[in-house]
Design a protein around this nucleic acid. Structure first.
Lengths: 322, 322
DNA sequence: AGCCGACTTAAGCATTCGCTTGAGTCGCCG
DNA sequence: CGGCGACTCAAGCGAATGCTTAAGTCGGCT
């Protein structure tokens, strides 16, 4: 397998940006032939001409367009990674926490802000991923800790239960089903379900519940965030499932109501998982100890008031390529 | 500049995953010496031992931990990119649309769903980025179209205005400032402002407004999404600025109220920007034509009912490493 | 036509990569 | 202490990469 090279990708990215081989060559400080050659290798290997000359620049083929985007990202990531490794010994600890979409949105901000107060000089990154890859993420060292369901038991992974939670099926206050009792799959399956980006992940409790009552991807509507889906529910567009403690204020204010659902388990447990022994970083260990403290419980159950803007890092939605 | 190599990164990733050089060598089908050598090159180049042997596996240094995460991403992205380029000619068009955080959350879903209905077999990706890089993204071909403020005028970039919008300063219904008239910086600067991840981007109208009245990053609170910040506003935790058409329903229902603010421009224009001429893909051109149609306007101004789950792709938050 | 600029191709060369084999080195356990 | 397992180092080799110079090719322009 002939490998693409970072140099080749850099050459292509520069050509795509500047719109000419000559310009790219000047910008990279090499001859045009060098750039042309690098692109030729990519063309051959990928079986795509990638771009053709056009009036006042170049016109990318569909393949070239994808490569331009991917290559720019790869090159940027490579440089960024080198940079970060180089200044790794600069004191500030680093922690990558993976969780579900709902966890990243509604559990981690409060939890990690609270954790950060007793662990100063800490740089936290939050990742939203399918539960199915929790274990892989830990083993691959792409995450230090996962928060949410426990991954399948595995030799080097330890899961610590730390918080019992309840789910609530919610609807708008004037929803037709509001006074019905003991709702089951028959009544619920064909309602419009409004969910966050990963709302059907079958390894979450809410995803399992939705699967249980027979909700399909074609019948559910997705919103860019769990909160957005709940807002749409409040506006009367459908139903959703949410952490009870998250919607408690809405239920109290009456902007949402809770439906009476039967025949499904709606209580579950949050786990913090990490590698065992020496393989666990000290910061990860500190977080694993922290989650069982009352301070952590309180932070999660209290409605979040947001994170100070200057210490905020937006969550990263990681896509997993099998 | 000695370059890291994808093969070297792959070797390191495998070592990090399997916890041993031997295991990695077997998994990669080469000798241990090959793996050891690849890691040695990385060690030398990055000036970090990356990992040390520990009981039953390895223990990563801080630098090694960063490298494991970055390298896994780079290797995955490289393979994914190769794969995507290879099947680029498989018919389905591809479109990458960049916008602001608010745009990605509150404008693009409806706009692109509507666009997708008249442009079947379309694969759309949405990117949330700072406005300052809109132009670069287009020139680097990392995005086909940007939606939001117009980037600084540049030779090969064309911006098409398509929608006039208003911002509203919103608060909870019982907020102390609710009956005050003509609020100015003096009254507003030290209120708690609740914003989305990129709420202070000075190149957006709302960011400019906040800068104008003197809001600093230390005084503002960040939420994982714009919608979440608006929810917190409704709960009484502070103020926010939002697209008027997005909060119209909340204002009507009374879950939010609008404050009377003076001395600041709160009306603006949305632009669709793309490269000119041959450099613009046909799909990008189609979107540029579409945004000015009544269907597009209506889609944006109507409250979104979500995207069918089976055709939903979560937005990507791109980090730009200068 | 004729030329010019932009790109590609070809040949050549130093360097590096990626790999193997074989010989250490290090820590550990009986 | 001998030996064992896991890793590192050294030498070496074929095949790339990455670069150059030099010689085409192609299209547009006057």
């Amino acid at each position: 397998m002939a490998d693409m090279t970072l140099t080749q990708l850099r050459a292509f990215v520069t050509v795509a940006r500047l719109g000419s081989v000559k310009g790219a060559a000047q910008s990279l400080g090499v001859t045009e032939a060098a750039v042309s050659g690098a692109v030729a290798v990519l063309r051959r290997e990928l079986g795509d001409v990638l771009f053709i000359r056009a009036a006042g620049g170049i016109s990318l083929t569909p393949g070239g367009s994808r490569l331009a985007a991917g290559a720019a990202e790869i090159v940027g990531l490579a440089e960024e990674t080198r940079h970060r490794v180089r200044q790794a010994s600069s004191g500030t600890a680093h922690l990558r926490v993976a969780s579900t979409e709902a966890g990243v949105e509604q559990v981690l901000p409060a939890l990690l802000t609270s954790f950060g107060r007793r662990q100063p000089d800490l740089d936290v990154e939050t990742l939203a991923v399918p539960v199915a890859v929790f274990g892989d993420l830990l083993r691959d060292r792409r995450a230090d800790v996962t928060i949410g369901p426990a991954p399948h038991p595995a030799p080097a992974v330890e899961s610590i239960p730390f918080l019992r939670f309840q789910l609530a099926v919610v609807a708008a206050p004037d929803h037709p089903l509001r006074h019905r009792q003991r709702l089951g799959p028959a009544q619920l399956a064909h309602e419009p379900w409004l969910l966050g980006p990963a709302g059907l992940d079958p390894d979450t409790l809410s995803g399992a519940f939705l699967a249980h009552i027979g909700v399909e991807a074609t019948g559910a509507k997705a919103f860019p965030s769990v909160t957005a889906s709940l807002n749409a529910v409040a506006a009367g567009a459908g139903l959703s499932v949410a952490f009870l403690h998250v919607v408690r204020d809405d239920l109290r204010r009456g902007s949402l109501i809770r439906l009476d659902v039967t025949g499904a388990r709606l209580g579950g447990m949050l786990y913090a998982s990490a590698l065992t022994g020496e393989r666990r970083s000290t910061t990860a260990a500190a977080l694993c100890r922290f989650v069982t403290t009352p301070a952590a419980t309180q932070a999660v159950l209290t409605r979040s008031n947001g994170v100070p803007m200057n210490e905020f890092r937006p969550p990263v939605h990681v896509t997993i390529w099998s």
